[in-house]
């Protein structure tokens, strides 16, 4: 086991390398890795009053969380939100990207408009949508001559919140799709045109398969992001709203336990379970990737 001796140049490079990564690694250890351990640690404790006298209770928090209908309800709500946000934002963005992927008038104008929600604060976005959804004075009910309580009817509210999620993210997905579309060689479409394939046929036989890496990438990142939804729900659904129970997400309930009820152990348990759920999902999605994604 003789260690190969480093030359002077290699030694100097090693020192520079370690020095350059030192700030980032130190920061990550303090800001991220210690917190992961600490959160997991706290999930084994019952939080005492005033944050003092925490007592070790083993897996009790896990048992309590896993047997509480509130947690499973919030997980279901989160999945429901994702089921609205992810497929619709991807489908609409893909169609828009295909439309914009050619020389046309106002191309950059459209892109600017679709991307606009990305630079608006979600807090502000949620406020204006709450106002649009207002039952008595809101624009939506006025335009459609309806009288729907968009965000306080339990069976409707989760869809209304999901719609805002879709609206917020379409432009972002579209820009990623435009990037992917530009990598598809133009000859493919020309060949298809000579063969007389219609635009819709070209979309399904050329665009979708060749774009599948981009689609997969967006799908994965959107699912993971959607499972962490908080801002829209926190801002749009008041605590007194009767629909809260059917809209509140896992992160929302976590936030309430940790920062409102000061039950840190219980809240930490929820977020650890969310982490496990997301890691499993990521692994499952990677299996799915190997099967369905077409790489050149």
């Amino acid at each position: 086991m003789k260690k190969p001796k480093m030359t002077k140049a290699q030694k100097s490079e090693a020192i520079w390398g370690l020095a350059f990564v030192a700030p980032t690694i130190t920061g990550l250890l303090i800001l991220n890795f210690y917190p992961i351990v600490n959160t997991v640690w706290q999930s084994f404790f019952k939080t005492g009053d005033f944050g003092k006298g925490n007592t070790f209770i083993g897996l009790t928090n896990y048992v309590n969380v896993c047997t509480s209908s509130e947690f499973w309800g919030s997980l279901l709500n989160t999945v429901k939100y994702a089921v609205i946000e992810v497929p619709f934002s991807i489908a609409i963005a893909l169609v828009l990207a295909v439309f914009l992927n050619r020389k046309m008038r106002f191309r950059s104008g459209y892109r600017t408009i679709f991307f606009l929600p990305m630079v608006a604060a979600p807090a502000a976005v949620a406020m204006v949508w709450k106002w649009l959804y207002n039952q008595r004075y809101g624009l939506l009910n006025q335009i459609f001559h309806t009288d729907i309580a968009w965000i306080s009817t339990p069976s409707v509210a989760w869809i209304s919140v999901g719609v805002v999620g879709v609206w917020s993210i379409i432009g972002y997905n579209m820009v990623l799709f435009l990037g992917g579309l530009q990598e598809i060689p133009h000859d493919y479409y020309e060949a298809a045109q000579i063969d007389g394939a219609s635009g819709i046929r070209q979309f399904f036989t050329i665009t979708i398969p060749l774009l599948s890496p981009t689609i997969y990438f967006i799908l994965q990142t959107r699912i993971i992001a959607a499972l962490q939804v908080f801002d829209l729900i926190y801002m749009m659904i008041d605590k007194t709203n009767v629909a809260l129970k059917s809209v509140q997400s896992v992160v929302y309930v976590f936030y309430q336990y940790v920062f409102t009820y000061d039950n840190k152990g219980y809240g930490s348990t929820m977020v650890v379970l969310l982490l496990i759920f997301i890691l499993f999902l990521t692994a499952a999605l990677q299996k799915f990737e190997k099967k369905f994604v077409f790489y050149n």
Binding site: N32, P35, I36, Q228, V271, I278
Partner: peptide
């Protein structure tokens, strides 16, 4: 997920 860093 970044929420796990939040409390610590």
């Amino acid at each position: 997920p970044s929420q796990i860093f939040l409390l610590p």
